[in-house]
Design a protein around this nucleic acid. Structure first.
Length: 596
RNA sequence: GGACCGGUAGCUCAGCUGGAUAGAGCACAAACCUUCUAAGCUUGGGGUCAUUGGUUCGAAUCCAAUCCGGUUCACCA
């Protein structure tokens, strides 16, 4: 149990014993004490003074007295300033904690809780390569999955590939028109980029044809409808749905190129899935649920035959679930897929990592599933994240301002290489070890950059400045880890651990204590990150930990400490810090090097 | 127009279940490598927390209004 929780419990007990009032520990506010005051943790008393009819000062004194005398093993002193009760935690508490945990490689992680969670992320279109926005999605999805695992959940990672539809046909038509049989192999192009190029070519051609039609006196709208490439594309979609062999052949051929490209990218960035769904297999799902909904009266039919759900009572609009021609729409297949996933995996919670432009969609989706009484409905959670924007605004493929994922990863790895060579600290590494190190640092910088901000918020990426390697960054934390490992290598294994740290006797110095306090918070942080679906909580925490360690490192000698006891203590602190950094970075999907 | 999200230092972001004098990083200025990795440490300047009003012992945080920016409300996916 964390100290903070203990303080809350002890305070609740004290208030009960002193004043006979029952309070829940959760209702008691405990903060870290501000540096300018004496103490480690602070109980904020204002909330109780009315109920207890005491002055803040009197209440603080009585509570402080009671709490410290009843829990002498936990607190050494207290002081009261205004309505704040500042408690100083006994050094022995921290010594015990360090001694108990420094060898625990799964410190912070919870045992299996028997719960199953699905995380759907990545979900690409097969008509263009991945860009910076997809990277945020992939890193978030992977990270939230790891965070949930660390908290004891069984996690199933899934991906729904958008491999059909009008946009895919656009690439196919353009390829037929312009490629002369070219392939990724014949042009030495990565498959997803190859296909993406034809998607661009389609749009160029489409624009041209529209312009021509407009000079012939058509309106924009007419021209858009009548352009021959667009007509051909629509015909191709119909042919695809009818299963026309030549179209199916081209479709699967082009998709296979894209998958080859995606696989390469996924492998580099560390995305993987336990189960991949393809829309070409799932787009007809949910049709039967429309009938169910009609029978239940959840849906209604308009005179033209189209089927709708009325969500106006929930503050939303009417939503179409089946077209008048009997074909289903996007949301219908999502309902069907939700049901399918439930049948297949029966997870208690299902997390969808999808951009915030689909907030409305997911609100509607969950509501419909609830109204249909699907067992998966209540466990649906949309992990909504903001767009990654450029200083000039949104990325636009039409204006060529999209930051390509492969290019960016290459660039980051290159910068890592350049900086590593400049510093020249690992000249004895083999070329293979160097490659691995550049990957670790480059991807570490990129992942940390995208995960350190609250997922819900949109963020800005400035390609001009590239991504920093100093300060609040992945490499800074990786560097801290490498530094600690260097010390541990040089200092050998820790002796005397059997004696128990409380007997080490020496009082903790301020930075030693600050480190211990921070380390002790890790399990709570990991748990918060899971319940709030927010990896940035871990990123910020790890950064602060690394900062404290670096101050500690500069101020105190570890390997050559003043006494043997101090040396042991500091080595234990260092080892636990390295362990927490490693675990914390790993749940962000980031590796930490032994040397850099 | 309705709904939802955001506006905190020059820039990028924390803090938002109300608590002590609003914090980091970058950038800028200064000091620190005969001793455990300087991708580091220390110090300094830098703020009308969009605006106005309200709630109260106390508001960046909650409420209302206004301004600015974004997303969304397709028989698109």
């Amino acid at each position: 149990m964390s100290v903070v929780l203990k303080i809350k419990e002890v305070t609740a007990v004290a208030i009960n014993q002193l004043y006979g009032i029952d309070l829940l520990p959760v209702d008691i506010l405990v903060n870290a004490t501000k540096p300018e005051f004496e103490g480690d943790y602070t109980v904020v008393l204002f909330a109780f003074i009315k109920q207890l009819k005491k002055s803040p000062d009197a209440l603080g004194q009585e509570l402080g007295d009671h709490i410290t005398t009843e829990n002498q093993h936990l607190f050494t002193s207290f002081n009261v300033i205004k309505g704040f009760l500042n408690l100083t935690v006994a050094d022995n508490y921290w010594l015990h904690f360090i001694g108990d945990q420094y060898k625990n490689i799964s410190f912070g992680c919870a045992p299996a809780n028997g719960q199953k969670v699905m995380v759907e992320y990545s979900s690409p279109n097969t008509n263009k390569p991945l860009h910076l926005g997809h990277l945020r999605n992939n890193f978030l999805g992977r990270s939230i999955a790891e965070i949930l695992k660390a908290n004891g959940n069984e996690v199933i990672k899934t991906c729904i590939v958008n491999d059909r539809g009008i946009h895919i046909c656009k690439s196919m038509i353009a390829w037929e028109m312009f490629a002369n049989g070219a392939t990724p192999a014949s042009t030495h192009t990565k498959g997803d980029h190859f296909v993406g190029d034809y998607y661009v070519k389609f749009n160029d051609e489409y624009k041209k044809e529209i312009d021509v039609l407009k000079t012939q006196g058509k309106t924009q709208e007419e021209a858009e409808k009548e352009a021959p490439v667009m007509k051909a594309t629509q015909q191709m979609l119909l042919d695809w749905e009818a299963g026309k062999p030549s179209v199916m052949e081209l479709w699967s051929r082009m998709n296979s190129w894209v998958y080859e490209g995606f696989d390469a990218t996924y492998k580099r960035i560390g995305s993987d899935f336990d189960k991949t769904y393809y829309e070409s297999n799932t787009y007809l799902l949910g049709k039967d649920l429309v009938e169910t909904g009609l029978a239940k009266g959840v849906f209604f039919q308009k005179t033209d035959g189209s089927v709708w759900i009325d969500l106006t009572a929930d503050g939303l609009d009417e939503k179409l679930v089946r077209r008048k021609d009997g074909t289903s729409v996007y949301i219908t297949q999502d309902i069907g897929l939700a049901e399918q996933k439930q049948k297949e995996f029966n997870a208690g919670q299902s997390i969808y990592v999808v951009g915030d432009e689909q907030n409305y969609h997911f609100k509607v989706l969950k509501l419909i599933c609830q109204k249909l009484g699907l067992p998966s409905a209540d466990g649906m959670y949309h992990l909504s994240y903001g767009m990654v924007e450029l200083p000039t605004g949104k990325m636009k493929s039409r204006e060529g301002t999209v930051v390509d994922a492969d290019d960016l990863v290459d660039e980051m790895i290159n910068i890592a290489k350049q900086k590593t060579e400049e510093l020249g600290k690992v000249k004895d590494f083999t070329s293979q070890e160097l490659e691995e190190l550049y990957n670790t640092i480059g991807l570490g910088a990129l992942k940390f950059f995208l995960l350190r901000v609250d997922p819900k918020k949109k963020m800005v990426f400035n390609p001009e400045e590239s991504i920093d390697f100093h300060g609040f960054t992945g490499p800074f934390i990786q560097y801290t880890h490498a530094r600690i490992k260097s010390i541990l290598r040089k200092s050998g294994t820790i002796q005397k651990q059997e004696t128990g740290n409380e007997q080490l006797g020496t009082a903790l110095l301020p930075l030693e204590k600050e480190l211990a306090i921070h380390l002790e918070m890790f399990p709570v942080i990991l748990n918060d990150a899971a319940t709030e679906h927010d990896p940035s909580k871990v990123a910020i925490y790890i950064f602060n930990l690394a900062k404290i360690f670096n101050s500690f490192y500069t101020e105190h000698s570890i390997g050559n400490a003043e006494t043997e006891e101090k040396k042991i203590l500091r080595l234990q602190l260092s080892q636990l810090t390295a362990q927490v950094i490693k675990t914390g970075m790993n749940v962000l999907g980031i590796n930490v090097p032994e040397r850099m």
